[in-house]
Design a protein around this nucleic acid. Structure first.
Lengths: 199, 199, 199, 199
DNA sequence: TATGAATGAGGGTTCATTCAT
DNA sequence: GATGAATGAACCCTCATTCAT
């Protein structure tokens, strides 16, 4: 019974490292953050860190995977077909993590890395595909119910919607005169008008 | 007389370095690309490179500045007020550089860097502000002519439009089933419906 | 009674570790093989390994000792004085281990290490001295029987013979056109002519 | 004219590094010697050393190549066919480097490394082949003149002779009672009797 | 007996930058 | 204007070893 806890400790330590790495990556970028910085942040010696992860790349990859999974996790759990894509989008905005745009700035690190690192690109694609599948189904269902413009290709549209969603953290970098709530409303409006059946 | 040409040579050399740096940054990222790589790409010794730029940061900053300026340069030169924002957007898409989504992936490097580097953030904001000013004026003129929904705040809307524009290079990272032309059409549709006056 | 077996297990485990270490040393060299590699090869945790050996050096030293002892073990057991040195040499060649020249390549590791490590040098010398003593006696007896050239100093000659013997694993490193059997015959011929009384 | 010296300086620096590395390898082995040790020995910063060699392996390989080449260089320059292999062997012994058996102990490092490192093995073989070719020719010529036993295969014999030669540095590791001059005489005797035509 | 968490010094290598020529 | 020698701190990672359990 008591022994059972050991693997949990191991996994717990891994999560601590990932969290420490996330903070360092935010401050210095994926490449700018060094192993020794992450070790300091995780209060751990460099030798020990390598008992949990075989390389810095492995840390980045798992961090990317878990981060993207958590970003998109709010979609699952919704009773399928009960809502339009518009609602889905709107809910996506309110999910955990998105209320801290600073924290999710790491998405840009991943996008930049994905442009030149095949493995990160695969992780990004895999996680994005999950959301796109859900969005595609929601759009198709919405079209069947006459709530979504039938002229739109559901699959392509889902890609555009995800891109729009991911572009959100860009706003505070460009401007100080637009807060989170206002930009959320504007984008929701844009998507709403985009999807609405045209008469 | 003869001496007059020297500063031009100097400027030409600087541009060569910036172009070489751009290629390296694309391949390895802002932090991953090293001075020695840039030197090799520019066929130049490291000592000599430092005659043109005082530091790697200076290279990144000027590269960022010129890159963003060129991205947005198509807006200037248009007789003001003659076109709707929709047209502007559509033209933006056809500008130099955007036809090579791969090449403009460097935007993500800059967005990531802007999140943690004040100077890059300032450069990004400065360049974005130029486009936003033009877009804001075009939107206001469009509203006056009844071509743009008057309910939209022109300033805020311009920010969203720029964000949407900058999100475009994301698409090829997410999906292989959506080519440049199709995504351009979809986004143009979305923006068109967004801005159209609602009856 | 039951407890009696424990020390045997202990010794068995030590031998397993030494065998695992030997394999690692062959693949990566004395310095290139790490404790963690040896642990993996021996299917044992590092903490546990240190219950059997106090240090990596201790492993190397005991491995060296047992390896050299086994190399030379065929000499003992022979009824003293009954055979000439030539026969001894010839038998040495057929002993266990020498038929796998790859396996005995580790001798070079030990020779290299002996050049700079006093303790290994002592182990090498101690084991070599044992063979040299036997060879010296055999040579002396051979001289008494007129089968060995009396002009040769038995002690010095024994050193040369051991060196010739130890040089054998070098051959496959130099050439592919000379197999074990042929080189064995050639060396036996050389030693035979060397020792034979000159008329 | 003055400029001509620059590449010579470069080559000179490389040779200094190789000499420093050789000393370190002698003291600590190929793997035991660290780059920082070599840098200290060569009075050079680690960053600078990598302007001359791309890796530690490259240092080892060039050192091996030049060391082996110098070991065997005394053979060339002899008017072909004028001497027996015995004389060749005897001269080999007096060549530069062999009078310092300590210094040439590095041969064992190379033999050990050759056992598990393909590139070192190739370098060893290449250099050995040069000597074997010369020895083979000398043996063949000696057989034609009746000075060498015709029953011996010249090619195989040359391999054995090189192995015997390379085994020499082993002697001072095994024993203190046999000096360089005595062991040289004994080995020369052995080889002489080996090659002599049997009546 | 046996584990694997933990250390921190050191491994080979690359870095941005400076300077003498 | 142009070179490349030179630095040494920092890079990611591995090491032999110890210790609590």
């Amino acid at each position: 019974m008591v022994r059972k806890r050991v693997p949990e400790q191991h996994e717990g330590r891994r999560q601590e490292i990932l969290a420490a790495a996330h903070r360092c990556f935010l401050r210095h970028g994926l490449q700018g953050a060094s192993i020794s910085m992450i070790c300091k942040e995780a209060a751990m010696s460099p030798g020990h860190l390598y008992h949990y992860f075989p390389s810095k790349d492995a840390i980045i990859e798992q961090m990317a995977d878990e981060y993207l999974a958590s970003l998109h996790s709010h979609f699952s759990g919704h009773p399928e077909g009960e809502q339009t894509a518009t609602v889905l989008l709107s809910e996506l905005w309110s999910m955990k993590g998105w209320d801290d745009l600073g924290h999710c700035r790491i998405l840009f690190e991943l996008l930049a890395e994905a442009g030149r690192n095949e493995r990160i690109r695969a992780i990004l694609k895999e996680n994005t595909d999950g959301v796109r599948t859900l969005l595609t189904e929601a759009l198709t269902a919405g079209q069947a119910r006459g709530e979504v413009d039938s002229a739109l290709d559901p699959k392509h549209t889902s890609a555009v919607l995800v891109a729009v969603l991911d572009a959100a953290p860009m706003l505070p970098l460009m401007t100080a005169d637009l807060n989170f709530e206002e930009s959320r409303k504007l984008i929701t409006t844009m998507v709403g008008r985009f999807l609405k059946p045209q008469q």
